[in-house]
Design a protein around this nucleic acid. Structure first.
Lengths: 74, 74
DNA sequence: GCGGATTTGTACGTATGTATG
DNA sequence: GCATACATACGTACAAATCCG
């Protein structure tokens, strides 16, 4: 999933992958748990959290403590 | 330098210490390197970077890769 | 221009504590 | 109680930019 030879940072690749999966409906309303998604993408939690925080800032996702990350639809 | 019994987080104490040293002229234009400053304050580099990022957001400091952290004067 | 030293940026791993459902 | 998520904090390693001999 994540290519270490890419000129993009890992968190940027993770961000783009998540965006694509939202666009194609893989993640229609809710994302997998942080730990699972991080493992699936092959990045550390901190790295994934960086990517997720960008998407939250963009309004693409909202995070609810104790629940998860949800797609806003915007 | 950093008091583990303080109600403040380590990164908040580091932030306040750096602010004070800028105010009293200890750091007039440039800060010591991250590794040195972290060791001097007794915190991990990640903790120091957290404190520094806050000061950068406030406009107190600017960071230049390969050079260091500089006091803006604002 | 080259090579090494310095310095910030990013990534990864782990751990603890707190809060929510 | 348990799973999920957030925040903080420690450590390590490598990448990228800069500086200097």
């Amino acid at each position: 999933m994540i290519d270490p030879r890419s000129p993009l940072y890992a968190w940027e690749q993770a961000r783009d992958l998540i965006r694509a999966r939202i666009a194609d409906g893989t993640y229609a309303d809710r994302l997998p748990a942080e730990v699972d998604l991080a493992h699936e993408l092959g990045v550390a939690r901190g790295t994934l959290r960086h990517a997720l925080s960008v998407l939250v800032d963009e309004g693409v996702l909202v995070s609810i403590r104790g629940r998860g990350y949800f797609v806003t639809g915007r």
